[in-house]
């Protein structure tokens, strides 16, 4: 028996929106710890890792650890039936091949029951070691999103360079080139507007903008984004989900030949 209840149902809608352009199908891992997922895009260049801890749910019951294979696109379709202020309950029984979503309006005057077929998905889990990163940039997620959108109109790749001067995002394309530098700014009264750079070593890495731009679909989940970089390692772009967990994206860098 697996059952979880999330009063802030829009959160689940936003989480699925933040995954659906990257991943087609995924196994959701259910355990007493919470509801989690690790999935790669079809070309194995990017990976998304989601964690929603059990304590963050109003009700969470998971009798045994198991995985539910779901089509993310179909899940997004089902969640379209929920209003933003609905309470969402997800239920699955042992040995069944369906999952039930229940959407309740806050005043309890409308209840939707949606059943979705589960899938068998062969997926490779990657072991991601806890690493010390050479540079960690924390900045407003909307700022990061608009930088990625702006640069992707000029070029296909973004070079992220962290130095004592700040973090520079640059691109080059047929029509020209552009670079945007953000300096450390921790003096702001609003912590969500701060840009904080922790640097052990200067780092320069280049990434495909098409993936990074997909990651910024998670912008509505968190006011701040954390970008962790080390030379010749995948970047980690993390959005914290308040009181529940996080969504982390990993992207392999471009390699100079």
């Amino acid at each position: 028996m697996f059952e979880l209840r999330l009063v802030q149902g829009s959160l689940l809608k936003r989480v699925i929106d933040a995954i659906k352009d990257l991943v087609n199908d995924a196994n959701f891992d259910c355990s007493s710890t919470g509801f989690s997922l690790q999935a790669m895009d079809s070309s194995h260049v990017a990976l998304v890792a989601l964690l929603l801890r059990s304590e963050g749910f109003e009700h969470f019951r998971c009798d045994r650890t198991f995985s539910m294979g779901m089509s993310i696109a179909n899940m997004a379709k089902m969640l379209k039936c929920a209003s933003n202020d609905d309470i969402i309950t997800i239920k699955a029984d042992d040995g069944t091949d369906t999952v039930t979503f229940m959407f309740e309006s806050p005043s309890q005057d409308k209840i939707s029951d949606i059943e979705m077929k589960l899938m068998d998905i062969d997926s490779d889990h990657l072991g991601i070691p806890d690493a010390e990163y050479e540079a960690i940039v924390r900045m407003p997620s909307t700022e990061f999103g608009s930088i990625c959108t702006s640069l992707s109109t000029i070029g296909d790749t973004v070079t992220i360079a962290v130095s004592k001067q700040g973090v520079t995002f640059s691109t080059k394309g047929d029509i020209g080139s552009g670079n945007i530098t953000c300096r450390q700014n921790s003096s702001t009264e609003k912590p969500e507007e701060a840009t904080i750079i922790e640097m052990k070593e200067p780092v320069v890495l280049t990434f495909a903008l098409k993936y990074i731009t997909t990651f910024t679909k998670a912008t509505s989940l968190s006011s701040q984004v954390t970008i962790s970089l080390s030379s010749d390692m995948p970047v980690v772009v993390e959005y914290k989900i308040a009181e529940m967990g996080h969504i982390r994206y990993y992207l392999a860098p471009k390699i100079e030949e």
């Binding site: 260049v45 990017a46 889990h125 990993y250």
Partner: peptide
């Protein structure tokens, strides 16, 4: 010139 790396080059399957 640059090529796109794959994640398996960095993280091992479990």
């Amino acid at each position: 010139k640059s090529s796109q790396g794959r994640l398996e080059a960095f993280f091992k399957p479990t």
